[in-house]
Simulated assay, not measured.
Amino acid sequence: MFFARKFSIGAFLCIPLLGACAYPGQYFGIDAEKGNSQEVAANGVDYTLTPIDAVSLNALASRSSAQAELVPATFTPEAGAYQYLIGVGDLVRITVWDHPELTNPAGNTTGQLQGQVVLPDGTFYFPFLNKVKAAGRTTDEIRVEMTRNLEKFIRSPQVDVYIQPNGFRSQKIYVSGEVSQPGFFPITDVPTRLSDAIAQAGGLSKEADLSNVTLQRNNQTVVLDAYRLLYQGDLSQNILLKNGDVLNIPDRRLRKVFLMGEVVQPSSFIMPVGKLTLAEVLSDIGGINQNTANAQQVYVIRQAVVDAASQPKLNIYHLDSTSPTSVLYADQFEMQPRDVVYVDPVRLVRINRLLGTILPSLQVLPAVRSNIRVLEGE
């Protein structure tokens, strides 16, 4: 009997201690009254807490404009008009007017004339002139030189130099990823830019991530924003492509937003093309749970941009959704990929969850006490 009483009293004394250790479920527990502050979380990750208001929204807009990714100088075209430089394998057509024996020395009268292929040494053969250097030169440079050299054999020669429509063989770009027809595409005497490459590849698919188009050139990689180009008219993103460039349009699989805590439907979903706001995110999943959510504690957790050698850091944005102006602020707050939207529970819900964990254990105690009495022979 004494053992049973001692066991019951000890069990009841341990229950408050267990409840004080940890509440079940997730809880953010950041003091939103601190406003703009920097703290160190329990797991050692530095974070900055910022309220979502007019001041912070203006600061975020200014920061976004300042951080707009600029194309490096190594990827921008040189000054002056675009000129195609002939390369090995190109098919060059030479016409000397009033001299068909030079224009078509083989006597071909069947239609399309083939022209001269630029050999591996960068030259092609032409009567009277033997080898003519072509690689790395423009058609106009070749025409001027051939005209000057043919004057030794022909009076006032009229020479025309051009590349056959199907003769652009030496320079290519490769387009891969979320396009209709990925593959190699030739660079011609018409400048090929980002928009041209997308069009040549048959256009973008529905799953294309327009904001993270990557271009690889000479072991360097730059990220281009095709959304700014196609939908906002930012021509700085429409860069000139060069031989050997690899253009990749990734899918939107990694552009996700996560919803956790006291929301109607905790989930994750892929961001649509274009702008996505906090108000749209909450409305698309049915909003916060009106029975359990603390409307004053809506948070957006975002990974801060730091150096690879630096410690991880978080930017945490707080929204008090009980305020009438919160809807306006939420509609102006733009989400970014991998953002986490979290809503804290109210204190009463945390207590009820704790009691829901403890009560089943309390219901077992009478049965344990009864078994102890049986063992003691009462």
Results as ranks from 00 to 15, higher is better:
residue 209 D to S: 12
residue 70 L to P: 00
residue 302 R to Y: 08
residue 200 Q to F: 12
residue 306 V to F: 01
residue 41 A to R: 14
residue 328 L to Q: 09
residue 110 T to P: 00
residue 369 R to P: 00
residue 240 L to R: 08
residue 117 V to C: 01
residue 270 I to S: 13
residue 20 A to Y: 12
residue 365 L to M: 14
residue 283 S to T: 15
residue 359 L to S: 05
residue 62 S to Q: 15
residue 304 A to Q: 10
residue 130 N to F: 06
residue 189 D to T: 04
residue 140 D to M: 09
residue 147 T to N: 13
residue 37 S to M: 07
residue 175 V to G: 03
residue 14 C to G: 06
residue 241 L to H: 06
residue 215 L to T: 07
residue 247 L to K: 08
residue 130 N to E: 15
residue 109 T to Q: 14
residue 329 Y to N: 11
residue 38 Q to I: 10
residue 248 N to W: 04
residue 319 L to G: 08
residue 264 V to L: 15
residue 189 D to M: 01
residue 6 K to M: 13
residue 356 G to K: 06
residue 112 Q to H: 03
residue 328 L to M: 14
residue 114 Q to A: 13
residue 344 D to M: 06
residue 202 G to T: 11
residue 330 A to R: 11
residue 169 R to I: 09
residue 91 L to T: 10
residue 75 F to E: 08
residue 11 A to C: 10
residue 95 T to F: 10
residue 82 Y to Q: 07
residue 155 R to M: 09
residue 16 P to C: 01
residue 16 P to G: 05
residue 57 L to G: 08
residue 94 I to H: 11
residue 44 G to P: 05
residue 240 L to Y: 02
residue 192 T to N: 00
residue 245 D to C: 05
residue 317 Y to S: 10
residue 99 H to E: 12
residue 316 I to M: 13
residue 288 I to T: 15
residue 218 N to Q: 14
residue 83 Q to F: 09
residue 326 S to K: 09
residue 285 I to N: 07
residue 43 N to W: 04
residue 362 L to R: 07
residue 12 F to H: 10
residue 178 E to K: 10
residue 274 G to D: 07
residue 154 I to M: 08
residue 91 L to I: 07
residue 136 G to K: 05
residue 44 G to K: 04
residue 356 G to R: 04
residue 19 G to R: 03
residue 88 V to L: 03
residue 278 L to R: 05
residue 145 E to H: 01
residue 286 G to Q: 11
residue 277 T to P: 05
residue 155 R to K: 15
residue 338 R to E: 14
residue 52 I to N: 01
residue 143 R to C: 04
residue 93 R to Y: 14
residue 194 L to G: 04
residue 367 A to E: 01
residue 129 L to F: 07
residue 92 V to N: 10
residue 234 D to H: 02
residue 311 Q to V: 06
residue 15 I to C: 10
residue 308 A to I: 10
residue 339 D to L: 03
residue 209 D to Q: 11
residue 323 S to I: 01
residue 314 L to Y: 11
residue 66 A to C: 00
residue 320 D to T: 06
residue 312 P to D: 07
residue 132 V to W: 01
residue 203 G to N: 03
residue 77 P to D: 09
residue 88 V to S: 07
